[in-house]
């Protein structure tokens, strides 16, 4: 079986998705969770673009348009998540779901 670009890109997208999911589960830090979700999203985008490319005969524009929409939505989601994480950090003085109040109450 010859290795086609579609094969490589698709499996890379799946790999990124699974790596991001693993990071989302195992990292207690909020910032790392946000980064993990972004890695998952990148995997999904890569996979969708690969699906749209198909076998290179006719390129399906629908997944491409979905990826374009999804990029903007993921940026918005990341911005909201970062703002929420900042707010959590300011309010509870924690950036980590396991270690609460690492710095002593200095505020």
């Amino acid at each position: 079986m010859s290795v086609s670009p579609t094969f490589v890109y698709g499996l890379t997208g799946l790999f990124l998705f699974v790596v991001g999911l693993g990071g989302l589960i195992s990292c207690p830090q909020l910032l790392r969770k946000i980064l993990a979700v972004n890695i998952m999203v990148s995997g999904v985008f890569l996979f969708l673009v690969t699906i749209g490319y198909g076998h290179g005969v006719i390129i399906d524009p629908v997944p491409h348009a979905m990826v374009l929409t999804g990029i903007v939505v993921s940026v918005s989601g990341t911005a909201v998540a970062l703002a929420l994480a900042c707010r959590v950090h300011e309010t509870f003085n924690m950036s980590d779901l396991l270690k609460r109040r690492t710095r002593s109450n200095d505020r």
Binding site: L14, F15, L21, I51
Partner: peptide, 28 residues
Amino acid sequence: SLVMLAGLSAALAWAFLTPGPDPLGLAH
């Protein structure tokens, strides 16, 4: 969670490598 992730990636890879009904999608 590692076992779960391995199972998930195997399932996803299987789904990706199985040929779909219409590879051209909505292009036409």
